[in-house]
Design a binder for these strands. Structure first.
Lengths: 114, 114
DNA sequence: TCAACGATTCATGAGTAGTTGAAATATGGA
DNA sequence: TCCATATTTCAACTACTCATGAATCGTTGA
């Protein structure tokens, strides 16, 4: 991920409603949720929701596809992971202190690295 | 890290100059750099720089201390790591696809987790 | 105590993002 | 074709963020 993309993604995530949308969509994986279903969870007007969804899509964090009269949104999880990777490795140059705070191993991992 | 803190941190990072400052400070660790030294790298007016440093400090991403007539800024690396941790584990619920993009092991780690 | 230095604060103006409600577009079914 | 549903677009407004330069504050050394 390039810096410009990372800035766009950070900007998109730096909003309560949009962060909430991402949190809602990540566990849904590829199947995603329709705009209406998302709206039922985040309590904002349809037009505002559409605006936020469009911001997230432009930032590359979610994808949209039409299914009948609904538009289904799903999290682009590899992109979100790419942003985190950027923060960790490009932005923070793989700094150990930063990395130790967020290293994620499998629960049974016992490698002791870091 | 709470959502409100994460939003503040994301907002602070979502700016080219401020991201650049963090990138500059992380490798300097505790010793940090003075405002003047930072200014020499990021090419913006002193007042603008002061504003950006203050934003980053308010967001908890950097710390300031006075040394003589200089003010030394250093990255709060555990906080930055905490933000990344939040994105990975709270925001993305430890999603595997997200995690695989950004897992950081020691170069010689061979545990195979993930 | 005064001048120089390092950094911050303030006032102002421009630009951008966010919100709202109404209108428009797209799709599916009667 | 016409209507209902799902979603987006538009226009107008508000609020916030960003940038600039001048003024100010705090510290050091002559």
């Amino acid at each position: 991920m390039e810096q410009a993309q990372a800035l766009g993604a950070l900007s998109a995530l730096a909003h309560e409603t949009r962060l909430q949308i991402v949190r809602l969509l990540v566990p849904c994986g590829q199947s995603g949720l329709s705009a209406g279903e998302i709206g039922a969870h985040v309590a904002c007007s349809a037009s505002r929701l559409s605006f936020h969804l469009s911001s997230l899509e432009q930032a590359g964090l979610i994808a949209a596809r039409r299914e009948g009269r609904r538009v289904i949104y799903s999290a682009r999880r590899r992109r979100i992971g790419g942003l985190i990777h950027y923060l960790l490795n490009d932005c923070c140059a793989g700094d150990r202190t930063v990395g130790e705070m967020c290293r994620l191993h499998a629960p049974d991992c016992n490698c002791g690295c870091g």
